[in-house]
């Protein structure tokens, strides 16, 4: 059964600024991704950057439960996130979680900024989540960020976006299975989608954007 904390973290209504993120969809559509390819785009992300983020979150959670510093896992995530634009966007999104966390519990990190998956992991630690729950949340949030941004960016029926999320379920299950047992930063998946990285990298200079990233 999902814990209350897991449900809160998986809920877009949690006030962390999630509505400002499109999980790479806006840059992709601006650069030429066809709306018909969005379901495949969701799978691409689960195969690559979401695996990286989910693995990062899980290893971060283990380090937090062990009372160990997060620096090695921050380094590992940075090495897997080559664009400074993508790094900055994740750190900015992470600030939303850190701010909520700080307001709720007085939580303060040794490092002033954490990428989003580690900021989520820190809240997950406070709320006693399991590694599998956390990995599931990272996948779910990315898929739903794409789906909800799609409704703003391209004409579609919300029922369609739900069907995309349902169809991505098997791939999300595989991510959870693959990363839930990780405890070594070196073992965090490093799967990359170079084209998508370049799309997101270009978004830093895009004008007339709706979403931060």
């Amino acid at each position: 059964m999902m814990s209350g904390g897991a449900l809160l973290l998986g809920d877009a209504r949690l006030p962390t600024g999630g509505h400002t993120q499109s999980a790479g969809l806006e840059p992709a559509l601006l650069t030429g991704l066809s709306p018909a390819s969005i379901p495949g785009f969701i799978v691409s992300r689960l195969r690559t950057c979401v695996r990286v983020d989910a693995g990062t979150a899980v290893v971060g959670l283990r380090l937090l439960y062990a009372g160990a510093p997060l620096d090695p896992v921050v380094d590992a995530w940075c090495a897997r996130t080559p664009s400074e634009v993508v790094q900055a966007a994740s750190i900015e999104a992470g600030r939303g979680y850190l701010r909520l966390h700080q307001r709720l519990t007085g939580f303060a990190t040794a490092t002033p900024a954490l990428p989003r998956p580690l900021a989520v992991a820190a809240l997950a630690h406070s709320w006693d989540l399991s590694a599998a729950e956390l990995a599931r949340i990272i996948c779910h949030d990315d898929v739903q960020s794409v789906c909800s941004a799609a409704l703003k960016l391209t004409p579609c029926d919300p029922v369609d976006t739900v069907s995309w999320a349902v169809a991505a379920g098997d791939e999300a299950d595989r991510v959870v299975t693959e990363v839930q047992g990780l405890d070594d930063p070196d073992d965090i998946p490093a799967a990359a989608a170079p084209e998508m990285e370049l799309w997101q990298h270009a978004h830093g200079n895009a004008s007339r954007r709706l979403f931060r990233a």
């Binding site: 785009f41 992300r45 084209e195 799309w199």
Partner: peptide
């Protein structure tokens, strides 16, 4: 310290996914 870690899987199926290679 790790500076760059990247695994590219460019089999036919994966590289046909949107945003992987193009």
């Amino acid at each position: 310290r790790p500076l760059l870690a990247e695994d590219l899987v460019l089999d036919r199926h994966t590289r046909a996914l949107p945003g992987v290679l193009g």
